[in-house]
C-alpha cells in the first residue's frame, strides 16, 4: 500500500517538506489557538463580552469558531482525513455536522423557551 500524504495546508499557502514536519507544524498551530483561547478567557476583553451577535456574546462566538478550527486540523491532519477519498470524507463529516447542528438547534431553542416560561411566568424553581 502506498501512503501518499497531502502536505499543503491553508489551501496550499503553507507547504511542508515531509509528513513529520507537517505534524509538528499542526501542533504549533493548535497550541497557538489554545493559547489565544486561554488568554481571551482570562482577560475577557469588554468589547467582546458586551457586544452580542445573535443573542450570544462575541467572545463565545470566537471560542466556538476557534474550536471548530482546531477540530478541523485534528480531523484533517491527525486523523488523515485530508488523504481519504471524497466519498469517505463526506460520509463522515456531512452526516455528523448535519445531525449535530440539528440536535443543538432543537435543544437550545427548547431550553431558551423554558427559560422564558420561568422568567415571565409564575413558576418557581423547584428541581
Amino acid at each position: 500500500m502506498a501512503h501518499e500524504h497531502k502536505l499543503a495546508i491553508f489551501r496550499g499557502t503553507l507547504k511542508f517538506k515531509s509528513n513529520i514536519t507537517k505534524i509538528w507544524g499542526i501542533l504549533i498551530i493548535l497550541s497557538i489557538v489554545t493559547a489565544i483561547e486561554v488568554v481571551l478567557g482570562i482577560i475577557k476583553p469588554e468589547i467582546l463580552t458586551e457586544t452580542t451577535f445573535i443573542r450570544m456574546k462575541l467572545l463565545n462566538w470566537i471560542f466556538i469558531l476557534l474550536t471548530i478550527f482546531k477540530a478541523y486540523y485534528i480531523t484533517w491532519d491527525f486523523m488523515h482525513m485530508r488523504d481519504e477519498v471524497k466519498g469517505l470524507r463526506r460520509a463522515v463529516v456531512w452526516t455528523a455536522v448535519f445531525l449535530i447542528c440539528y440536535l443543538v438547534f432543537i435543544l437550545l431553542t427548547e431550553g431558551d423557551y423554558i427559560f422564558d416560561v420561568y422568567n415571565t411566568g409564575f413558576q418557581s424553581w423547584d428541581f
Partner: peptide, 10 residues
C-alpha cells in the same frame, strides 16, 4: 447539547 439545553434554561 443537553448541557447547553440546561444552561439556556437557567
Amino acid at each position: 447539547a443537553a448541557y447547553g439545553f440546561s444552561r439556556f434554561k437557567f
